[in-house]
Design a binder for these strands. Structure first.
Lengths: 338, 338
DNA sequence: AAATATACCCAAAACGTTTCGGATTTACTT
DNA sequence: AAGTAAATCCGAAACGTTTTGGGTATATTT
């Protein structure tokens, strides 16, 4: 593997000059620059980024921490789309992406900070972390520039991008109310997700504004999974048959709720309206097609990468970005039966 | 950021000893080892992998080259599942994954080998590359250990994992023949995909064995996309209305074909049988549910990582792995109408 | 003609590790 | 008591870059 020294020797100059020539500094004459470039090509040189990073103290890599990127998570393409967005922006930059796998076994033996500091990543993007994850505390305490997706923390070195979950949930519930629904259940994620808290707020807000009573017993947690969402729907619909509409905090849970409804012989949307959240791919393919609150998942990732890299290069100062949501009216919601 | 030197100073030993102590060498006494470990913890030390890699000439990273990981590719979760498999195995190893983005613009300015050599990856996994991609030639010519997914090349430093595409396609077509179909069209990918060539062979083989004539005009390319698959189906069904069944080389194209059929008022499966390939998530969600040849995409990625890492660590010598496929009989195929 | 500016170049230190080839002490053999 | 073995330790070189703080000509100004 050829080095800068080999080039220096063959071109008859010092390594300093080679380095400066290849990096486009001005204090090297045009003819030696040409010469060096030619020799470099002849020897099929490629720089050793490790050596460079070592001395420059910047690795030009950003770490990507996705928790739970497993066989099962493929169904929920939320994470995948975010990843695609991150990838898209990063690929246009001078950075590369390093994927950190934080399966639970590894987590115990290596902390978040260790992971990042060993690899000397310049910054890190974190997605899908729970608020009770030990890593989260570390983030705030460490000094590694960090961008959180869907966790609204902010400090000198931590920023975030998210969507307006309160408003999004409000839109969803408002839609149901417009259709005449008054007994509206909610299937939420879990208490350790910021988005769950916010979507709950939106739900309450919409009820409030419409002058409808808030029934805590109309709410059940579905852990963001299809299975648990189905169970939650079962529970809600059996204990409170008067419910005519369900607002689910994720599409996957909404799809679970749809199967529950089917098994309970409640036809969607005539006997029961269901609205989801996320607008995952499956939402347009299940039958009936799922009405949902769409978030720009790709954009979320894209903007996350953009924000972080902007900060790393001191080109920007923003630490926070909130994106819009959009109601996608499909076939799983309808006017309440009189 | 604390270094090995800081530890040495504080513990009153040489850097050599610190290094050897932390790496578990035997020629350091138990008491100094304890001492060093304690000091390391006090100073919150984490090793600099860049420095280590530089001297050891191994970076403990493997590169992942996925071409076309974009907004659109999310629908086709083939790649995503493979990625999940790779990720799963790698996360259990001591390696980390670095994602190389080869969008076309970057490709021109940086070659495949440069990408890998700059980052000094120990090996690389390549997925979704076309046979006419300039990168592919580079792989063979370079000396970087490389694992190809679905491209059956083999040499000193290149290995591959794939599925038995000939047999898989044969199974699909045989299934159609068993249902009584004789005029069977095929929507293939494109000529620059090994899998397309192999699936075509399987198609011909099945026809041969059944004593059915091979009609080249019953074949059209759909580029592996839903759009082009739909177009190909249109063309085939309009020009050859006698066709009663379609074998598609990917589920996405099969889904495209289903919409074409709908628009042409040919009801699946009674008027037209359609069988896909891959068994992507959507296959079970479209209506009617798609009969298809399932491949273990997650396993493909998992085994790819395993094979490569095994080779890197000289624990294995295998350069080739072929996985099985399975016929998933669903609702898009039926007996031919008499 | 002297002083100054400009253009071009370089030696050496630094980044944080690992490892080679001993060196020193202590314990064990003969 | 001398020699050998084992147990611990260490100095210095190496990995391949970038950068600092100059140096030496040549050209330009005064």
């Amino acid at each position: 593997m050829t080095t800068i020294k080999d080039i220096a020797k063959k071109a008859g100059v010092s390594v300093t000059t080679v380095s400066r020539a290849l990096n486009g500094y001005s204090d090297v004459s045009e003819i030696t620059r040409k010469k060096i470039a030619q020799v470099a090509k002849e020897l099929n040189y490629s720089p050793n980024s490790l050596a460079r990073s070592l001395v420059m103290k910047r690795s030009q890599t950003i770490g990507l921490l996705v928790s739970g990127f497993t066989k099962e998570s493929v169904k929920d393409n939320f994470m995948v789309e975010v990843l695609a967005g991150v990838n898209e922006y990063v690929s246009g930059s001078s950075y590369d992406l390093i994927l950190f796998n934080t399966n639970s076994s590894k987590q115990r033996e290596k902390t978040y900070t260790q992971l990042c500091r060993e690899r000397r990543v310049d910054g890190v993007i974190i997605q899908g972390i729970r608020t009770d994850d030990p890593y989260l505390k570390e983030v705030v305490e460490s000094d590694i520039p960090c961008l959180l997706i869907d966790i609204p923390l902010e400090s000198d070195h931590v920023s975030h991008v998210t969507t307006d979950n309160v408003l999004g949930a409000e839109k969803a519930v408002k839609h149901l109310i417009h259709l005449g629904h008054e007994k509206i259940g909610m299937i939420n994620g879990h208490e350790f997700a910021f988005v769950s808290r916010e979507r709950l707020q939106g739900y309450q807000k919409a009820l409030d504004k419409a002058g409808l009573a808030f029934h805590p017993e109309y709410i059940a947690d579905g852990e963001f999974t299809e299975e648990k969402g189905k169970e939650a729907a079962f529970q809600l619909l059996r204990n409170h048959p008067e419910i005519t509409a369900l607002f689910c905090a994720s599409d996957l849970m909404a799809i679970g709720a749809m199967s529950a409804a089917k098994e309970l012989n409640r036809q969607v949307p005539v006997d029961l309206s269901i609205i989801g959240y996320d607008d995952i791919l499956l939402a347009s393919y299940v039958s009936p097609k799922l009405t949902t609150i769409a978030q720009n998942k790709f954009g979320l990732g894209y903007e996350a990468a953009r924000l972080l890299i902007g900060l790393l290069q001191h080109e920007t100062e923003t630490h926070r970005l909130v994106m819009k949501t959009e109601l996608m009216e499909r076939e799983s919601t309808a006017e309440v039966k009189k």
